[in-house]
Design a protein around this nucleic acid. Structure first.
Lengths: 209, 209, 209, 209
DNA sequence: ACTAACGGGACTTCCCGTTCCT
DNA sequence: AGGAACGGGAAGTCCCGTTAGT
């Protein structure tokens, strides 16, 4: 209920945050599907129902939109999907395996050929645009260091064999995530994921105490 | 020595095969660096010193060049670098690890940020162009099945634990190759490769008999 | 001192006249530097620290700003710099020469390549926008007729040879001003001005009685 | 008649020089009328009946067209109209006056408001684009030094008073040309020209021996 | 086999101006 | 009076591809 003085929830007109979010959302999906260079500003504009003027108001260039996508959307997704869920597991090693399996199996089939949003952009843009590279690398590092924290937790609880470096393990885990997405993207089915997941699980078993 | 009647090795004028090869070579490097969509026909033309007419004489479209690149260049490279060398190893599991290490360490530093030619294209083009996808997937399958042959050899020689599927193992190995390249592309150094390589080596050790 | 009831000289908020003057001032300099068509409303807005809304509140269109610039700023400048000072000279012919010399020599070097505000706009806009033409021509006529008054004064005092028309002389004088500015704009130094000034001085000497 | 080996006069299709010349011609007129910044590539393209592709083939950028216009068209015009004709006069001082009068009086009335092509560009572009400035200044210098040669001829023949510098005189003459065009542009009639021409003639008379 | 003029269209950018809001 | 979201359209650039010609 609205009391006096409360801000009314924005109606339709003039909601800049909503507009900006809408642009990011539409652009994210289109770029995920066809790549950053494969999506034109017109495509995004058409997808949002806005005009070019509105787009240009919120993002000075197409690249600025891409940067925002990495800084905001991608980073948030990594946190929500791959790092935070690990908190719910007593055994982080098991958590990594279970969480990956869970998210992939819950993924709708039409998303399978799209690949990993982060990996797609890394492969496409890292060497094309230095700022893209820097920002993408920051997200990757955020991911790895986020996983490493949980690996240290595992180590502290004695769930990790001696001689296994937590950083190295985290790197290997994240690489497995991206590699699995990459292969799914080419094979377009979850079978290859399950195969890769089995191997990863085996590996995690072998480093567990 | 050239005998009468032997074709002299063509110098410069009118050598269609040489021209075609030159185009492929230049395009390969440019596309490896900036992506397929990031390279224009004009760029390739400029890089070869030819003209647009020559380009379109050899390739009906820009896409056709991309397809040829996958069918010919990429496939050959996979065979030469990742499959054939395994023949030289008594123990294919060891061969995989040693060959990967050897090739990466021999790689010039300026190639590190370029990533894997196959992986780059898969991530960029699989979902953009169906023909690209088909051809890229064929190379990937060629690679995996090529590795699997050697894994079967390992199994036949009793070098592989029971219960380890050769196909699954081959998939995991190839994924590790692409994943390692992908991460090197972002971190731009070989340190992260060595970390990943250690993990792979550990894994291969754990599945060896 | 401020008495009760007197309007305090407005500091910063909500002073429409001050805002309008600020826009004119900033626009004048930018247009002098890059031309009317080379300056965008956004440039002016940025230069003033205002927003577009403020700009269009004071001027209905970009052209309206240009018109105001001609009507107000340019006309005032012509009066202050080229006409009023002549009042201080007993001999207006000498006054023209001395005043021109004085103003140019006092001009900072970085203004040399900017040219004459009036002449710039005449050459750029006269044939592009009829209203611009009309207003610019009015300022030019204002200038010439202002000078002519002083030429008539010279004639009345017998300082002018017989047979020299005051209108024609005024036109020639103003033309020399604009021409000198135009050449300084291209050569970017005052040397060429001094050369032209010598010739003008010689001419004025030859028509003096 | 065409002999064997003679190049056939180009027909209609594929005549690059003719196309380039056509672009320059159309662009010259449009830019003379509306200024460089006031003319769009589309305007020029429309005026020539070509397409943007053709335009871009002959000139990499719009600026490159402008540069070519200055280097080629403007320089040639200056030579043909203001320098070469002086050769036909025994007395160059008289030549300057007569040639100016002749060309202006022969000018169609609709050209009067267009101004001097060189002066227009100098005032509009000198401070906007450094390359433009450099090239325009070169043409101006070419003009002045071309006139100076004839002034030296006058001096050598004893047609010039002692103490009159040929360089300074040439500068004054060229300035009078540009200034006259500038004023005609604003007043849109030849009356003001005749007034200015009278003054110039008087001046030239006063420096003649 | 190869050259270069040429065709159009699509791209990002950015412009001027309007409108809703405070 | 002023601030900012937004509307469209047009600018210059550049791209892929065709075709006349050698």
């Amino acid at each position: 209920m609205l009391s006096i003085g409360m801000k009314r929830p924005p109606k339709r007109t003039r909601n800049p945050e909503r507009t900006r979010a809408k642009i990011l959302e539409v652009a994210f999906l289109q770029i995920l599907t066809r790549g950053f260079q494969g999506v034109s500003v017109d495509d995004i504009v058409k997808g949002t129902g806005l005009t070019k003027g509105a787009f240009f108001h919120h993002f000075p260039t197409k690249q600025a939109l891409g940067y925002a996508l990495v800084d905001e959307t991608l980073k948030r997704m990594v946190a929500e999907r791959w790092i935070t869920p690990l908190e719910g597991f007593e055994n982080p090693l098991e958590g990594v395996s279970v969480n990956l399996k869970r998210l992939i199996e819950a993924m709708p089939d039409e998303h399978v050929p799209l690949g990993c949003p982060l990996n797609n952009l890394v492969q496409e843009m890292s060497n094309v645009d230095p700022v893209f590279h820097e920002k993408l690398n920051a997200v990757l590092e955020f991911w790895i260091s986020g996983v490493e924290k949980h690996m240290r937790r595992a180590k502290d609880r004695g769930l990790l064999k001696e001689g296994i470096g937590t950083r190295s393990l985290a790197e290997f885990i994240v690489m497995n995530h991206e590699g699995a997405f990459g292969m799914m993207k080419s094979y377009r089915n979850k079978r290859v994921f399950r195969s890769l997941h089995d191997s990863l699980k085996k590996y995690l078993g072998s480093v567990g105490a």
